[in-house]
Amino acid sequence: MKLLQASFRYPVVGITVVIFAAAMCVSSSIDPAEKPSTTATASSASTKDDGALFTAFVSVLRHPRCMSCHSRGDFPRQGDDGHPHAMNVRRGPEGHGVTAEKCSTCHQDHNLVGTHLPPGAPNWGLPPPTTPMIWQGLTDAQICRSIKDPKQNKNRNLDQLVEHLTEDKLVMWGWNPGEGRTPIPMPHEEFAAKVKQWQAAGASCPADTGNKI
C-alpha cells in the first residue's frame, strides 16, 4: 500500500491504492518515458514468434486513450498527460464509479457533438477492482501476460480477448475519441490485423527483460 499523489487541478491526496508491480515509482501522470525499452523488433509473421508480434501493437495499449482506464490508482484519468479525472471520480465496486458519480452520470453510450463534452461509448467504465488490469509501470512482457491471464482478464479465452481488443466498442472508441482528443495513431485495421497475427502465431509474450518499472 502506498500513497499516490495526484496532479493537475484536482489534487487527490491520500488515496490508498493497491500496487501490483514489485517496485513502482510514484508518479502523478502517465509518463511515456516509463515505457520500457525492448530489444525485440517487429517482424513479419513467423511461426516462431518471440513476442515481437505483441510489441508490434503494444503502443496502442499504452496510448493515453487506453491508459486513462488502465493506469494505477482506483480512479480514471484524462487527457494526453494522464491527469486524474476531474471531480474525484473513483473506480467504484464494479468499475463504473460510485453513488452519485458513476460513469453513466455524465458519459453516454456515444460521443456528443462539440468540444469539451464528455466522450462516450457503450459500457463506459474502468475494469472492476477485482481485475483492475493496470498496465502503467509494466513491461511489455507483463502487459502481455496480464491480458492473457484469465484471472486478470475476466476469464476471457484468447478468442474472447482478441474480440475485446479488436471489436469491443469501448476499445474502438480510442480511434474515434470525439472532438478535441487525440485518436490512437495506428489505424484500427492495422491494429486488428496485428492482434490477429499475434494470435495466429500462438500469442507469445516477449521475454521479460527484467526492466520492470
Partner: peptide
C-alpha cells in the same frame, strides 16, 4: 449517495458530491 450509502463517511461525501 444516501440510497447507496445510508451512513456515508466524509470520504463517501467527497466521492459523491465533488461533481
Amino acid at each position: 449517495l444516501l440510497r447507496e450509502k445510508p451512513q456515508p463517511t466524509d470520504e463517501d461525501i467527497d466521492e459523491a458530491m465533488t461533481g
